[in-house]
């Protein structure tokens, strides 16, 4: 599918400015940028949640599903996990149960969780429920908007592994949005960098990281915190 000349305006403010981005079938395109760069607005436009000008070709409205940043607020607190996952299914009642179980096992959750409420789950489990719900609609494109930002590091890995497994096993096409360049690099085939509403650089993940072409990408790369850079305290002489 391809996003062509997509522009989103809020009054006089242009949040997304003439973005053209191709998302090849079966690939994960990572979209990275800072707050206010327009990456989440682009996601919401592609998902049909905000009006835009331009075109999104190769996918119909129901073919796009989105997974949100905070899994606690993206699941209805009054609905069980099973009911949430079943929400998008267009199946006779009898077949739903089996489909819900299939979807839960797809995201490696025990089927027994279907009767629980989202508040009883951990953050990582909740995010997997949200992914299962989106997969239930058999999307052509899955939009993942900062899906690991609200998660602790120790469970982030499991969610990222799941995303990669879904692509490898089912050829899922995905737009993966994050402010975290290391996370985007890890899951994506193609990395696109957004800055002030515009796309400043697009390319294969390893190439963008190893040899950034745009100054902004370079400064973004330099700013990524690295574990090994810390130094011991200087000796204090008083």
């Amino acid at each position: 599918m391809i996003i062509k000349n997509l522009t989103v305006r809020f009054g006089a403010f242009t949040a997304v400015d003439d973005v053209t981005l191709e998302i090849p079938d079966g690939a994960i395109v990572g979209l990275v940028g800072e707050s206010g760069s327009g990456k989440s607005t682009l996601a919401r436009a592609v998902s049909g949640l905000v009006p835009y000008s331009g075109a999104v070709e190769g996918v119909d409205r129901r073919g796009v599903q989105m997974v949100f940043q905070d899994p606690l607020t993206s699941l209805d607190p009054r609905m069980t996990v099973g009911a949430s996952v079943a929400e998008g299914l267009r199946l006779p009642r009898a077949a739903r149960q089996a489909e819900v179980e299939r979807l839960l096992s797809l995201v490696s959750l025990p089927v027994s969780l279907a009767g629980r409420y989202s508040r009883e789950l951990s953050g990582g489990q909740r995010q997997r429920v949200a992914i299962a719900r989106a997969l239930g609609a058999r999307p052509t494109l899955l939009v993942a908007d900062e899906i690991t930002s609200a998660l602790d590091v120790s469970v982030q890995g499991a969610v990222l592994n799941l995303i990669r497994a879904l692509r490898e096993e089912f050829g899922l096409t995905m737009l993966f949005i994050s402010h975290n360049l290391a996370v985007v690099r890890y899951v994506s085939d193609v990395v696109a960098v957004m800055h002030r509403g515009r796309l400043v650089e697009t390319g294969p993940a390893e190439r963008v990281v190893a040899a950034p072409a745009h100054d902004y990408t370079r400064s973004l790369l330099e700013a990524v915190p690295r574990l090994g850079r810390g130094r011991p305290a200087p000796e204090v002489t008083s």
Binding site: G124, V155, R164, A182, R185, Y186, V224
Partner: peptide, 19 residues
């Protein structure tokens, strides 16, 4: 479990089960 700019992309990330 922390991915960085050198993480091997062909291997699954480590994560801690449970909470």
């Amino acid at each position: 479990s922390l991915p960085d700019m050198e993480t091997d992309r062909s291997l699954p990330l480590a994560s801690i089960p449970g909470r």
